[in-house]
């Protein structure tokens, strides 16, 4: 049976669907179709099959970028999230001033990536940067270096800049942890379970769904990563910090639209596969744990 308000329904859905069609669906087809062509954006497209992809996988910079994206994903998913989880569990027990800590840890999420990247560039600076000055002040002069210009430290320096900003996921996990009834902990206390046992047997199983979501989201961010690397090193030195987003931007600048979109298509597919694999693996594991 047709809804009697169907005309109005269409009218109300139209703006959202129109914007969605232009900025999600059309670009999706655009990226995938042009990824099989050689095209500079103005002239005619030449269909070249999988050549862009085979060229990319043969390309050293692309392989480095792909590897770096995975390093980002794993660093965020398996270092940042555990740190955020520990902090959430600590703050959930309401130590003195916990609300202030929560507010402070979340602060970097409202400051722009650009300002933070410029700030950290100043911190890592070879001359006048606070990191080298601190190292020199405690007698570790031998460790001072141009952190963002050194092949060995550049990637680590950019990742660390993001890694310890745990606020976002900490708040999400904390909200889930605060939803567990206090009586569970009181009962465990009476049974003689110590804090450690309470966290393992009560907190963790109850916050598991939100942990899985957080790991998935964090790893997806790792694949999408672009801004702070672009601003701090632009992929250098010698592509050591490059990621797929940086390569895509550079190909767009060089008017290699076909190659750029092949990178974009790789990003979309890899991101999707990664999200589904992680969710599947973690869900399987958690079912084992629960059951």
């Amino acid at each position: 049976m047709r809804n009697k308000n169907w005309k109005q329904i269409c009218l109300f859905l139209l703006p959202a669907l129109l914007l969605y069609a232009v900025f999600f669906i059309y670009p999706l087809f655009y990226v995938f179709i042009t990824s099989f062509t050689q095209w500079n954006g103005i002239g005619s497209m030449k269909f070249i099959g999988f050549k862009n992809f085979t060229d990319l996988f043969a390309n050293e910079t692309f392989r480095i970028s792909l590897k770096n994206n995975f390093i980002w994903s794993f660093a965020l998913g398996f270092i940042q999230i555990p740190l955020a989880t520990i902090m959430a569990l600590v703050l959930a027990r309401k130590p003195k001033g916990w609300k202030v800590y929560r507010t402070v840890f979340f602060l970097p999420n409202v400051i722009s990536q650009v300002a933070l990247a410029m700030m950290w560039t100043a911190i890592y600076n070879a001359d006048g940067g606070i990191l080298n000055s601190l190292l020199a002040a405690v007698g570790l002069e031998s460790l001072t270096r141009n952190w963002l210009g050194d092949m060995g430290t550049a990637l680590g320096a950019v990742i660390v800049q993001q890694l310890f900003y745990i606020g976002y996921f900490m708040v999400v996990i904390l909200a889930s942890r605060m939803g567990i009834p206090e009586s569970y902990y009181e009962a465990a206390e009476i049974d003689g379970a110590n804090v450690w046992q309470q966290e393992i047997h009560i907190s963790l199983p109850n916050i598991l769904p939100i942990l899985i979501t957080s790991v998935t989201l964090a790893m997806a961010y790792g694949m999408r990563h672009f801004e702070s690397t672009f601003l701090m090193t632009n992929g250098g030195p010698a592509h050591a910090t490059s990621v797929l987003g940086i390569m895509l931007y550079q190909n767009l600048g060089a008017l290699k639209y076909g190659v750029g979109n092949a990178i974009g298509a790789t990003l979309i597919v890899l991101g999707g596969v990664l999200i589904m694999t992680i969710r599947w693996l973690l869900n399987k594991k958690s079912q084992k744990m629960m059951g």
Partner: peptide, 23 residues
């Protein structure tokens, strides 16, 4: 329609640099 619109969160918008520029 609901699933279609919500599925947008799964897409890395960064991959749309070329199409957004051309639009």
């Amino acid at each position: 329609i609901l699933s279609l619109l919500l599925a947008g969160v799964l897409i890395p918008i960064i991959a749309f640099m070329v199409p957004y520029f051309s639009i």
